[in-house]
């Protein structure tokens, strides 16, 4: 089993890449690999509740984050520094996450077999 990191450092809205990127992460999990999702930088905003892209007729892909446990994706990391920078607290996020410092995340990242970002 390999450890695969999927890093989201931009909004999931506004383009189809976010959706196609999550499809990749789900697929990796379906192949029984260890999947870690990491939200850093501007990407932490992708997790906030009450996003309503439907008004723009954009597909809302936030709800699928709630499906991650079905596919045994239980490691969702957010970078503490980015949360601070964007003034977010965990209660404002759609799903429960592990907030870790940049340094602690980097230690894990160094051990990954493959890293994906988009």
């Amino acid at each position: 089993m390999k450890t695969l990191f999927f890093i989201i450092n931009k909004s999931l809205q506004g383009n189809v890449c976010g959706q196609e990127f999550l499809d990749m992460a789900l697929m990796a999990a379906a192949f029984d690999q260890k999947v870690v999702l990491l939200f850093e930088g501007e990407g932490v905003n992708a997790l906030v509740k009450n996003q309503c892209p439907d008004g723009l007729q954009l597909k809302n892909i936030v709800p699928v984050l709630n499906a991650l446990p079905i596919y045994d994706i239980n490691d969702v990391l957010v970078e503490e520094e980015s949360m601070t920078m964007w003034g977010l607290v965990e209660e404002e996020l759609e799903i429960s996450v592990h907030a870790l410092s940049r340094r602690a995340i980097k230690d894990q990242l160094n051990l990954a077999d493959h890293v994906f970002s988009f």
């Binding site: 990954a112 890293v115 970002s117 988009f118």
Partner: peptide
């Protein structure tokens, strides 16, 4: 080097 991260 491993891992490799592409920053686009």
């Amino acid at each position: 080097n491993n891992p490799v991260r592409s920053c686009c």
